[in-house]
């Protein structure tokens, strides 16, 4: 674990969640990568913490080693990825939404067409985080599973 084809794995990680201003630049980057202006396909969500006076945060897949979403997928569209997280095969997906329900931290989102949007840890969004909340880094399995770094 922690290695993909013998190489160290890279994942999207939180550097300092308390710095999040809720701008959602990450969310827009995610859909833009797929050729969209908007957020329909975004696998990351920026939210306020019951109102902006309490601050903001981002929600995305934290690359579980035993992903519940993959365990409940009836068609094998959501498959565990070596080193943590999932690989999503859209063509196998029937849009049942089991994965969305199963995710303990509510980090899988429903697109307008009913299919899930999930972070694939490509790191594209990290370059657009202007406040040092997100980074794309090589991780040790133990290290990236810790919330406070």
């Amino acid at each position: 674990m922690g290695e993909e084809n013998g190489k160290k794995v890279r994942r999207l990680v939180i550097k300092d969640i308390e710095k999040c201003v809720g701008c959602g630049m990450c969310m827009y980057a995610c859909s833009r990568r797929k050729g969209e202006a908007g957020i329909d396909s975004s696998g990351i969500l920026a939210v306020s913490l019951s109102g902006f006076e309490r601050g903001a945060t981002v929600i995305f897949c934290r690359a579980c080693v035993e992903p519940p979403c993959a365990q409940v997928c009836p068609t094998g569209a959501m498959r565990p990825r070596e080193g943590g997280g999932v690989i999503y095969h859209e063509t196998d997906c029937i849009g049942c939404g089991n994965c969305i329900e199963a995710c303990t931290i509510n980090a899988i989102f429903r697109r307008r067409d009913g299919k899930p949007a999930v972070c694939i840890h490509c790191g594209y969004c990290a370059d657009y985080c202007p406040h040092g909340v997100l980074a794309y880094e090589e991780v040790e399995p133990e290290a990236f599973r810790r919330v406070i770094v």
Binding site: V21, G22, C23, G24, M25, Y28, A46, S48, F52, G55, A56, Y128, P130, H131
Partner: peptide
Amino acid sequence: RRVACSHCPVACI
């Protein structure tokens, strides 16, 4: 704290 409008990196609030 500072917060931002949606889709703005400036966070002028």
